[in-house]
Write a protein that binds this DNA or RNA. Structure first.
Lengths: 132, 132
DNA sequence: CTCTTATTAGTAATTACTACTATTAAGTAT
DNA sequence: ATACTTAATAGTAGTAATTACTAATAAGAG
């Protein structure tokens, strides 16, 4: 039951690191540039495996396929309503709210995620910035 | 382009209110009890339309179909890792973090969502509560 | 009561992802 | 090095959630 370091697994990991919060399909497209006969299933399987092994984080957003993030440090994201892209939000992690919510509600809360909605820097400063 | 109040739309709305954060499929199953020949597409279309008209909120969670919530008051949710269900988390809304994150990052942040992970009350207190 | 067209039921298609299976190759043991 | 075990792959098929299409229906205005 030992895990094997395959070329495919390494390329998938490197590609997630090279891209910016890519979805599985973007990883697949990019990987195929260097390794054309890779299978889409192999990309999905390795992404899931890398998440299981805590080498990647899986990010879920409304109306969007899952994204993958090599930054394991707890942090939050912005989903851009114009381009649909994901950016890091560099603010302090709200490490106290799990305990606060647990105590307030009596529920067993183990973690949380925050997703911000708005316009990303690229869209705000880009060529069509005036188009709101 | 006026909107029409159809029986289907009314039943879909009533059913979301009667259930607890249902997914589209649960709404469909429940609606069919009273209105057997309704189409799944009609349920999906009305759910989306009701969200567009601010009569419902659409909730997105990792590894889970979208849920619908008639409670329009801003609030947070817990996704139970045991049963997969969604519960309300009755804690204060963090209305200040949008502005805080905007100022810190310079991004245009318009809103946010928080999803807590853990074990819901029913699972913790239920018959299999001891199973971790 | 008629007319316009939004909405529906039913079906087909799409998107994102998972499962299956024969073949390949990673890593261990000879 | 070479053989061996089996995890992982490529390729394909299948599934879940959701959207799109179209002829028929019915909501609501006139």
């Amino acid at each position: 039951m030992n895990k094997r370091m395959t070329i495919q697994r390494q390329i998938v990991l490197d590609t997630v690191k090279a891209l910016d919060h890519p979805a599985a399909n973007s990883v697949y497209e990019e990987v195929r540039m260097k390794y054309p006969h890779i299978s889409l299933g192999t990309v999905y399987r390795n992404l899931t495996s890398l998440c299981d092994d805590r080498e990647l984080l899986r990010l879920t957003f409304p109306n969007s396929p899952d994204r993958f993030d090599p930054n394991l440090h707890p942090h939050y994201h912005l989903l851009c309503r114009r381009c649909g892209g994901v950016s890091d939000v560099d603010m302090a992690y709200l490490s106290e709210i799990d305990r606060a919510a647990s105590e307030k509600t009596g529920l067993s809360i183990e973690g949380h995620m925050v997703c911000f909605f708005g316009i990303c820097g690229q869209c705000r400063d880009g060529p069509d910035a005036a188009v709101q």
